[in-house]
Simulated scan of single mutants.
Amino acid sequence: MAPLGPAERVFVSETFLGSVHGQLACTTCHGGNSNTPLTKEAKAAAHAATADFVALPSEQFDVYCSACHSDITTKFETSLHYTQNGFYERFKIRAGGMDLRTDANMKAGFDADCAKCHAACGQCHVIRPVSVNSGLEQAHQFYRTPSLVNNCTACHGSRVGEEFRGLHRGEEGYENVKEADVHYNKGMNCMACHPADEMHGDGNLYPYRYVENESFVAQCTDCHPDVLDTNTENLYHTTHVQGNTTLQCQICHSQTYKSCNGCHVGEGITGSSYPTFKIGKNYLKNTSSFRTTDFALVRHIPIAPDTYHNWNGSISLTTFDNAPTWKYTTPHNIQRWTFLTDTSGTAWCGQTCHDSHDEILLKRSDVDSTYLDDELRANEPVFTD
């Protein structure tokens, strides 16, 4: 995304000054010294005070936001958006239980290389996220609903944003991508499926982004309950949703999506992303109360046994193979008619799906890695052969 210009980054509108938050003095949230002339030369003095200047007050939301929004902040402090607990817990699984928060070198490396995606209140409701160079999004006005492009997919753009908006159309390998996600084409934004309660958290500290709380996590059947109707006239739903072998909805209704290669901290991703569409065994089935289908789409993630070695010179993921590198995924590129469901010109869906097993089922031969043995062991619960 194009960065905001220098003036756009800092301009405060008169509209903000008349708002509820604009009634507060600048120093109430930002500190600094208001008794300085409005000149370029006085900038340093204005930003200095007995209390340090606070550029991002909502990073301390318990101080600056909780007085009016305690119903949200008390839950947000344990949310995945704020704590990034999913990263820490995934790391522990692959590192033999080591908690990188207890090792000073590891924590410093994480903060420098990975923590930029951490979000506080302001990065969704006032500014563009820090990870995309920040800047005031609406001239310091506070907005209730984050912008799909300038807030949500500014952080979640590489996969979710590109797929949701259909940006891969016409690219090599994405020939099956015909449209943007049907929900995007109908004008729906992220909040339609991921409301504030989910983003702010429910007070629980979850170990993973696939939160185990059926009550506030978006599910296809929330809006499409008819697929669970035992009297449905749709033979495909009866067979694949209610039959002996069940499929995740995205298997039939997603288009080609992106996977990545190994990522080495300090060196970047070793290789470019590439288009995939792979069905694997659902290794979450026995650990989830509602992700219980037998098969699901999987996406390769950029992790390798020596990913973090440069943080302290020797760290390696000693239990790397305790978690798959082809992970359960929920692509945001939904269409009713996809290259698997469109049976026009064919006798039955078997000609586009069941007869294409070699291409769309994840098998051991799909693993081509510098760390082949590690990856083969890691993905044992996912392989279909």
Score class of each variant (00 low, 15 high):
residue 5 G to C: 14
residue 6 P to T: 07
residue 6 P to R: 07
residue 13 S to P: 04
residue 21 H to D: 14
residue 23 Q to N: 15
residue 32 G to S: 08
residue 35 N to T: 15
residue 35 N to V: 14
residue 36 T to Q: 12
residue 37 P to Y: 03
residue 42 A to Y: 00
residue 45 A to C: 00
residue 46 A to C: 07
residue 47 H to S: 09
residue 48 A to C: 03
residue 49 A to Y: 05
residue 49 A to M: 07
residue 50 T to H: 11
residue 55 A to D: 08
residue 57 P to K: 01
residue 57 P to L: 02
residue 58 S to I: 04
residue 62 D to V: 07
residue 62 D to A: 11
residue 65 C to I: 03
residue 68 C to I: 08
residue 71 D to N: 04
residue 72 I to E: 10
residue 74 T to A: 09
residue 84 Q to S: 12
residue 86 G to K: 11
residue 86 G to F: 13
residue 90 R to T: 11
residue 95 A to F: 10
residue 96 G to T: 04
residue 97 G to K: 11
residue 98 M to P: 09
residue 99 D to G: 00
residue 99 D to K: 01
residue 102 T to M: 06
residue 102 T to Y: 04
residue 104 A to W: 01
residue 108 A to K: 09
residue 109 G to H: 06
residue 115 A to T: 04
residue 116 K to V: 09
residue 124 C to F: 03
residue 128 R to S: 06
residue 129 P to C: 07
residue 131 S to Y: 04
residue 135 G to T: 06
residue 142 F to D: 08
residue 145 T to M: 12
residue 149 V to W: 13
residue 151 N to S: 11
residue 153 T to Q: 05
residue 162 E to M: 15
residue 162 E to T: 13
residue 165 R to G: 00
residue 172 E to T: 15
residue 176 N to M: 13
residue 189 N to I: 07
residue 190 C to S: 07
residue 191 M to H: 09
residue 194 H to G: 00
residue 198 E to H: 10
residue 198 E to K: 10
residue 199 M to Q: 12
residue 200 H to M: 15
residue 204 N to K: 15
residue 205 L to C: 08
residue 208 Y to L: 11
residue 209 R to D: 15
residue 211 V to N: 03
residue 211 V to A: 04
residue 214 E to C: 01
residue 214 E to I: 06
residue 214 E to A: 07
residue 230 T to W: 04
residue 234 N to T: 08
residue 237 H to E: 15
residue 238 T to F: 13
residue 243 G to Y: 00
residue 247 L to V: 06
residue 249 C to S: 15
residue 249 C to A: 12
residue 252 C to S: 13
residue 253 H to R: 02
residue 268 G to V: 03
residue 270 T to R: 12
residue 276 T to S: 15
residue 278 K to N: 05
residue 280 G to F: 02
residue 281 K to N: 11
residue 282 N to S: 02
residue 282 N to C: 02
residue 284 L to G: 00
residue 284 L to D: 04
residue 291 R to T: 00
residue 297 L to R: 02
residue 300 H to W: 01
residue 301 I to D: 08
residue 305 P to D: 06
residue 308 Y to L: 10
residue 309 H to I: 14
residue 311 W to V: 02
residue 312 N to S: 00
residue 313 G to H: 04
residue 317 L to Q: 09
residue 318 T to R: 09
residue 319 T to E: 06
residue 320 F to I: 09
residue 321 D to V: 03
residue 323 A to L: 12
residue 324 P to C: 03
residue 331 P to Y: 00
residue 339 F to T: 10
residue 339 F to M: 12
residue 340 L to T: 04
residue 342 D to E: 07
residue 348 W to R: 03
residue 349 C to H: 12
residue 349 C to M: 15
residue 350 G to C: 07
residue 351 Q to G: 03
residue 361 L to I: 01
residue 362 L to Y: 01
residue 363 K to I: 06
residue 365 S to W: 08
residue 366 D to M: 05
residue 367 V to C: 05
residue 368 D to V: 15
residue 368 D to H: 11
residue 372 L to G: 06
residue 376 L to M: 06
